[in-house]
């Protein structure tokens, strides 16, 4: 199999490329990123790196029908979405949605590409008190026009791929991944946990499922190898209450009345510059929402196994 990976210079893209190169069934990897010289990618004769701005439709087209065709690429892993929650505007939208659409439609008429793996997020699901705690693939999506662009774009990109599920010979699959708590993954929880004191809504302690990067990479590999077409939730191995996540990160959790949290975190964002936005997380921090990964288990044979490398093993006991 010859695979094109977008977002190659992001930490998750790099981890995926290393895993693909370790798999002898993968003949070649065409890594695509924005950086001119990727410093973290391994040197391998089975790896080709190409700097390309995929927000330009012509560049995406030429990549697929030029180098992609020459290398005989038969699968694409696309997860190069904009990660900063505070950014917004047409360029961000182009990266999140237009790039996905362009890659997808070009792949559908491409002579060699037969598999399209879209690495999405479970944050596309609507979290409400009335919605299920356990989110399967049929759960309601977030269509609130007041939702931040970060979420709206992801919903649109997800549905763009869904619209192509049976439209061509291409076999697309959407992976709605639980949150990977890691730097460079666009993780709001990661940023939330960078403060010594983490504020959380008073009276609520929702359950949150977290995914390790190793499991995410393994799920993508399974999706590449599987013929399954459709949407699969990718759950992590661990589900914790928010208070326990804060404690395991070695932070102090401070319950604060819910209405105060958004202004306090906005103030933090202005003064310290962190990315965490409470308005993006308010419903999750009240009602939780845990992805149901049974379809991925049945269709892809994926089962989460790798726990998160928590800085603190249990309350008060710091890992060596």
């Amino acid at each position: 199999m010859r695979v094109l990976v977008t977002g190659a210079t992001a930490p998750s893209g790099e981890a995926l490329i290393r895993a693909l190169l370790a798999d002898r069934a993968i003949e070649h990897v065409l890594a695509v990123g924005l950086d001119a010289q990727p410093v973290l990618l391994p040197a391998s004769p089975r790896l080709t790196y190409r700097a390309c701005d995929l927000t330009r439709p012509r560049a995406a087209h030429d990549l697929l029908f030029g180098q992609g065709l020459a290398l005989g690429i038969d699968a694409i892993v696309h997860g190069a979405l904009h990660r900063r929650a505070s950014d917004h505007g047409a360029r961000v939208h182009a990266q999140n949605v237009e790039t996905t659409r362009e890659l997808l439609t070009a792949s559908a008429r491409h002579p060699t590409v037969r598999r399209f793996v879209f690495v999405g997020t479970a944050e596309v699901y609507a979290l409400r008190a009335a919605e299920p705690t356990l989110l399967d693939e049929d759960a309601a999506l977030e269509f609130d026009p007041g939702a931040p662009q970060w979420i709206r774009d992801r919903v649109e990109a997800d549905l763009t791929v869904c619209a192509q599920l049976t439209a061509s010979a291409l076999r697309p699959i959407v992976l709605r991944c639980a949150e990977v708590i890691a730097p460079g993954a666009g993780s709001q929880l990661w940023d939330y946990l960078q403060s010594r004191v983490c504020l959380r809504p008073l009276g609520f302690d929702p359950m949150i499922n977290v995914l390790s990067r190793e499991d995410q990479v393994r799920a993508i590999q399974r999706a590449l190898a599987s013929p399954h077409v459709g949407v699969c939730n990718i759950a992590g191995a661990e589900t914790w209450p928010l208070s326990a996540i804060v404690a395991r990160w070695g932070r102090v959790g401070l319950p604060v009345p819910g209405p105060m949290l958004a202004p306090l975190y906005r103030l933090r964002s202005w003064t310290v510059g962190f990315e965490f936005r409470y308005d993006r997380n308010a419903r999750r921090f009240h009602f939780g929402g845990v992805v149901d990964g049974r379809r991925a288990e049945d269709a892809l044979g994926y089962r989460p196994t790798t726990p998160i490398a928590w800085p603190v093993a249990s309350h008060g006991a710091r890992l060596a």
Binding site: L135, D136, P201, G203, M207
Partner: peptide
């Protein structure tokens, strides 16, 4: 509506109460 109740929702979930929806 129970998940909207502060404190009560957390206590209930710890002792096994589940919001009434089909997937649950």
């Amino acid at each position: 509506f129970v998940p909207r109740l502060p404190f009560v929702s957390t206590l209930f979930s710890r002792v096994g109460v589940v919001s009434g929806s089909r997937p649950n």
